[in-house]
């Protein structure tokens, strides 16, 4: 082996050294430690006593956990179902026309995504003020209802409020993916279908939709995974988890147990349950859309 090729063989490993070191210390070790920790009870970061399955037994017997799973699932399903057609619709509206107009609207519609969830929560905690908040006033003048609704303190309205805020944050973000996909749709196919007498809807359904399907699947799966990790938005919007824990999410439940009660073992157990839920949901989604 001459000098150059030895250098060549060593180079990729040198470039990968930071990744390998960091992933060993901050991924592989914590991964194994999370398994170990889930079977121990801790009180703060130092102590740990083996307790077998009792962390899981505690979580699975805790009504708050089921409440968190239910809330998070409702949030994920409803917000993704509303987001998807809105994002796709806006992308379709932007797909034709001048590119300068497209860039301007893309910039505007994307802008909420720059604001972190905590800041969005703070912002909307005032926007939802009964009688005086921007949302309540806007709703009153648009549909004649809602001026006095207490969005953030009546249990039944907390989830709709969270979903509305999430739409504001993510519709424009997902639209960017759809827009990119639509720009890559094969124009000759669309033209051919037009010439053969297909109307706009038929072209969309039979030509455009199949071509953007991979991106749509990507968006659905990523949004669902993201929704299942919701925490910061309700935490700052509701200043906690809301009335009757109506805004408690799985990660919120993990945060409370691990860092407010100091039981890191239970935190690790909830982490595993969360990973399990996310795996199950995303593999079901991929299976459903992937079979055709």
């Amino acid at each position: 082996m001459n000098k150059t090729s030895r250098k060549m063989a060593a180079a990729p490993w040198c470039f990968l050294t930071p990744y390998i070191v960091l992933t060993s210390v901050f991924f592989i070790y914590p991964f194994l430690n999370a398994i170990w920790l889930a079977f121990h009870q801790t009180n703060g970061p130092r102590s740990a006593v083996f307790v077998g399955l009792s962390n899981f037994r505690f979580v699975l017997g805790d009504p708050d956990f089921y409440k968190a799973v239910k809330n998070t699932t409702i949030f994920a399903v409803v917000s993704v179902l509303i987001q998807l057609p809105l994002s796709l619709g806006l992308a379709l509206l932007l797909n034709t026309g001048k590119s300068r107009v497209r860039n301007l609207f893309r910039l505007i519609l994307f802008s909420p995504h720059l604001v972190g969830q905590i800041f969005v929560g703070i912002l909307f905690s005032v926007i939802f003020t009964p009688r005086f908040g921007l949302f309540n006033r806007g709703l009153q003048s648009l549909v004649g209802w809602g001026l006095d609704e207490r969005w953030l303190s009546s249990p039944g309205l907390v989830m709709p409020a969270l979903i509305i805020v999430s739409l504001w944050m993510y519709v424009g973000f997902n639209m960017i993916y759809f827009l990119a996909a639509l720009q890559n749709v094969d124009e000759t196919l669309v033209e051919a279908a037009r010439v053969d007498g297909a109307n706009r809807f038929q072209v969309f359904w039979h030509i455009t939709l199949p071509q953007i399907k991979p991106v749509a699947i990507f968006v659905v799966v990523m949004s669902t995974i993201g929704s299942y990790q919701l925490f910061e938005l309700p935490y700052s919007l509701l200043g906690g988890f809301g009335p009757n824990n109506a805004g408690l999410t799985i990660v919120g439940y993990l945060y409370t147990n691990a860092f407010e009660s100091g039981d890191l073992g239970t935190g690790a157990a909830i982490g595993w349950l969360l990973a399990l839920i996310i795996f199950t949901v995303s593999s079901i989604q991929i299976k459903i859309v992937g079979t055709e």
């Binding site: 901050f26 991924f27 070790y29 914590p30 991964f31 430690n33 999370a34 920790l37 801790t42 970061p45 995974i225 299942y228 990790q229 990660v251 993990l254 691990a258 860092f259 890191l264 073992g265 935190g267 690790a268 982490g271 595993w272 969360l274 990973a275 996310i278």
Partner: peptide
């Protein structure tokens, strides 16, 4: 999910 690693990394 990153949240799985929160407790072990905290330790």
């Amino acid at each position: 999910p990153g949240m799985l690693f929160l407790a072990p990394i905290y330790r």
